[in-house]
Structures are given as C-alpha cells and as structure tokens.
Design a binder for these strands. Structure first.
Length: 258
DNA sequence: AAACCTGTCAACCGCGCCCTT
DNA sequence: AAAGGGCGCGGTTGACAGGTT
C-alpha cells in the first residue's frame, strides 16, 4: 500500500531555491496577504513555480517569511529552549512558538548541532556517564511516550538528545537522571544497561513542583503522560504571563542554567 | 596546497492528525 | 461513518563552508 505521493517528483524541481524562485514565492505570498490562498498544494501552479507545495510551504515558513531570524541564539533563548525541551520533549514547533522569529526547523537544528553538545560538555565535569558506550544498549521506544498513552515512559524517547539532557539533569548520584520527556521522569540505570526506569528522585520532585506551580496538574505525574500539547502550551502561557513562575524555579535549577 | 574531517543548516521525507466530502 | 486529501510535524539527509592535518 503506502500513501500516494503529494506531487509528481519527476516533474518538480528539488534542492536549493534560486533567487528567482524565492522572488516568485515571496511575491505570491505578499499578493495574498501572507497566506497560500488556494492551499499549499495549489500554490506552485498559481505562483508559477515548479516545486512541490510542501517545499514551498517549508521555504516560506522557514526562510522567506517576514520576521524570521537565523542564527545568533541568545543565552536567554538557550535557557528557554532547554527548559521547554525538558518540559515537552522534542516538540520543536511548540518550543519555537515561544521564541519570536524562530522556526521549528531552526530550533531543532540549533539543538541538534550546538545546544545538546554544549549541555553535554557543561555536564562533563559531574555526573557524567559514558554516553558513547552506553548508547548502543539503550532500547529506544518507537514513539514518544506521550504519543503512546503508555502509563509510564522509557528513558530515551529520541536517542541522543534526550540522553544528553538526562546527563545534564543529573542531580543525584551517577545513575540518577532526569530524562527530558515532558514530565521529569527519573530513571536509574539498571545493571543491564537499559534506562527503563522507575524511581522518582529529588530532581523529579522538583520539576513536578514546577509543573504544578505552572497550573499543570498532570505534567509531573509519572502515571499521567496523556497531557495534550495544548495543555502544556497553556501551562507555559500561564507561566509566562504569571510573572514567569518557571523563571523563578529555573534560577534554582543549576542544570538548566549556565 | 591538498585531502580529509567536522559543523551547520536548508531541504526532503514520511507519518499522523484533522477537515471535508 | 468512512475515505481521501491537505497540512503540519519531527526525523533525517546531504551540500557546503570552514577548520585541521
């Protein structure tokens, strides 16, 4: 079976966009008030572009759209990304929504190429497990825990990224880690090398308290991972508009600060 | 100077959700 | 209620630039 392709790959151009294509797309979007009037699928034809509609959408949202910023992430943005990643995991669009001018793709790239490395290096002096040797033994679940509805989560929903956060979040002994799924799930490293887990730690309790103070009753419950992104977003909104409750807490969480 | 390595990021791919029919 | 299609998302790839050997 499999789904039908969204466009005729042989008929559309792929790869880097030319200045002329950018100009055509920009012109079209400006003429239509920044929206794909007939939908993204129809846009290439209407704008005179030999591109897939999805490609046009991506180019516009991630690059051409007015206000999009590239590079130059500030320390404050770093902190927000880390805090939100710790809270919601790799939901980049949600994270990017709280960073004016940033795109999900930009945030994701920044995290994958720089931030996680930065965090890892910063954690290098303390509570560091040998990630490179431990990684192959990690059984990564196929889906992020909050998408599965499972009553409890496993350690690494996405491989390296969460693992890095786990290291950074280490608040206790060598084997205690916070995994950056949305609810601070604490795992301990069993003898078999897997990161599946169970025991809450002081660090998890601390993040629990943060979620609760943000008005989120579900986020910190290890038995409740069904919280919707809307709920998480609402929590963050309340946080931001309530004189930043989270910021206050972050100040006391050195592993989210540097 | 050249080959190789590493880091960055734009772009692609496939999947799931949701809306429309 | 079911099917189909569009859209948005996260993961991954690949080109390219800059650095290192």
């Amino acid at each position: 079976m499999g789904r039908s392709p969204c466009c005729d790959k042989a008929a559309v151009k792929r790869g880097p966009w030319s200045e002329e294509e950018d100009a055509r797309l920009r012109s079209y979007m400006e003429r239509h008030g920044g929206a794909a009037a007939g939908g993204w699928m129809a846009l290439p034809r209407e704008a005179g572009l030999r591109r897939c509609g999805k490609s046009c959408r991506l180019r516009w949202l991630n690059y051409l759209r007015p206000g999009v910023r590239h590079g130059g992430f500030s320390p404050e943005e770093d902190r927000i990304i880390c805090a939100l990643h710790a809270a919601v995991g790799s939901r980049w669009s949600l994270i990017a929504a709280h960073l004016p001018g940033r795109t999900d793709n930009g945030v994701k790239n920044y995290w994958n190429t720089r931030l996680k490395k930065k965090l890892f290096l910063l954690a290098g002096g303390r509570n560091v497990i040998n990630v490179s040797s431990a990684a192959p033994s990690i059984a990564s679940p196929p889906l992020a825990p909050w998408t599965t509805g499972l009553p409890y989560t496993t350690g690494c929903s996405g491989g390296g990224v969460d693992q890095m956060c786990a290291v950074v979040g280490a608040g206790g002994g060598r084997d205690d880690m916070i995994v950056s799924t949305k609810a601070a799930v604490v795992v301990s490293q069993p003898a078999d090398g897997s990161y599946y887990s169970s025991e809450p730690s002081a660090a998890a309790t601390e993040l629990d308290a943060i979620f609760r103070s943000m008005g989120n009753t579900g986020g910190g419950e290890h038995s409740d991972l069904s919280q919707s992104s809307a709920e998480i977003e609402t929590s963050w909104y309340h946080c931001q508009h309530g004189e930043s409750v989270l910021q206050q807490h972050l100040g006391s969480m050195p592993y989210l600060y540097w």
